[in-house]
């Protein structure tokens, strides 16, 4: 199957007064149509920056290199006007905090209609109908009345539903969800994930889900990418990932994720996530915290080991 999105050797470096921060340092992955890909990692692993690079939503002092092929076209070569036509139209995004993602002084309905109106995809009347239909679809009761209300009249979960309606109204091919459930109650989290799943199946939208929660990733995605210190340490289909996790960091993540009804004790990964400013170009980024560290791990970049067409691990253990 052809890839909808292919990220090739993506590097995003921030040039600040205190030095260069290599937030994303050469990552590659592909996403097929209709599938869900999860990017898993701790805070500061570069997962959010990597998707913001796709949307080109980073400040000007961020330099993005590599290739981001969307239907075969490199988004990084697009000028501002061309990327504007992609944003909110063919690629949409849902952000982490629904409480601050909506403009407090603009009516919900207006905000939902905007992607359609801004891309000239519908008249105001059609957009209104579509917005009300979307609100109903994401599970907001009495959508017609809610249309004219302001964000402060909605709860956190409801706002995230509004965000989903807003992101999907223009029927994008790709939906990027950056930790969409992190700031929500646990019960609401599951509802939102189910909702994304349901709509995705109905429309055939591809999804990139950013999460630090491995359990969430295995629940909803077809493919999982694990990031650490700006690099990918392991990527595999969810099946392969659950059956045969290989990278020591992946192990660490699995062992520090609680499982209901199991008597297994949680074992956290010792140490701290790396400071991206101090990260060396050479060597495995996880080496300092790795329980199976070998001398060469800090001196040489880990090799790319392909266990199957879809399962890749970057680690000296498997040579």
């Amino acid at each position: 199957m052809e890839y909808l999105l292919e990220v090739k050797d993506l590097k995003t470096h921030f040039y600040t007064k205190k030095g260069v921060i290599k937030a994303v340092n050469g990552i590659s992955y592909g996403l097929k149509r209709g599938q869900t890909l999860s990017i898993v990692g701790e805070s500061g692993s570069g997962k959010s920056v990597s998707v913001l690079s796709i949307m080109r939503l980073l400040p000007t002092y961020a330099k993005v290199n590599g290739k981001i092929l969307f239907e075969g076209n490199n988004l990084l070569s697009y000028d501002d006007r061309k990327i504007k036509r992609i944003r909110g139209n063919r690629i949409s995004m849902i952000f982490q905090d629904p409480m601050s993602s909506l403009n407090p002084t603009v009516k919900i309905g207006q905000q939902i209609m905007e992607p359609l109106l801004w891309h000239h995809k519908a008249s105001k009347r059609e957009a209104r109908q579509k917005a009300i239909q979307m609100l109903t679809e994401v599970g907001i009761p009495s959508a017609k009345e809610r249309f004219d209300q302001y964000p402060f009249e909605f709860s956190g979960g409801m706002r995230q539903r509004v965000m989903i309606a807003m992101a999907l109204i223009s029927e994008p091919e790709l939906l990027i969800a950056d930790e969409p459930t992190t700031s929500l109650d646990v019960t609401v989290q599951a509802q939102i994930l189910q909702l994304i799943r349901k709509i995705q199946e109905k429309r055939g939208t591809s999804v990139i889900l950013i999460t630090h929660n491995l359990a969430v990733a295995t629940m909803v995605s077809d493919y999982i990418v694990v990031m650490y210190g700006g690099r990918i340490v392991e990527k595999a289909t969810t099946e392969e990932f659950l059956k045969n996790p290989l990278h020591p960091y992946t192990f660490g993540l699995l062992n520090s994720t609680p499982v209901l009804k199991s008597r297994k004790t949680l074992s956290p990964i010792p140490g701290q996530p790396p400071d991206l400013r101090e990260l060396e170009d050479i060597g495995c980024p996880f080496a300092k915290r790795c329980p199976k560290k070998m001398p060469r791990c800090e001196k040489e970049n880990p090799p790319e080991i392909n266990l199957s067409n879809t399962h890749t691990v970057y680690c000296w253990l498997y040579t």
Binding site: L57, R87, P104, E114, W118
Partner: peptide, 17 residues
């Protein structure tokens, strides 16, 4: 610098919007 402004950029808005 507000989050909803980034959301507006992400929706495909330009300077005017």
């Amino acid at each position: 610098n507000r989050e909803y402004i980034r959301v507006a950029w992400a929706k495909g808005g330009g300077f005017r919007e």
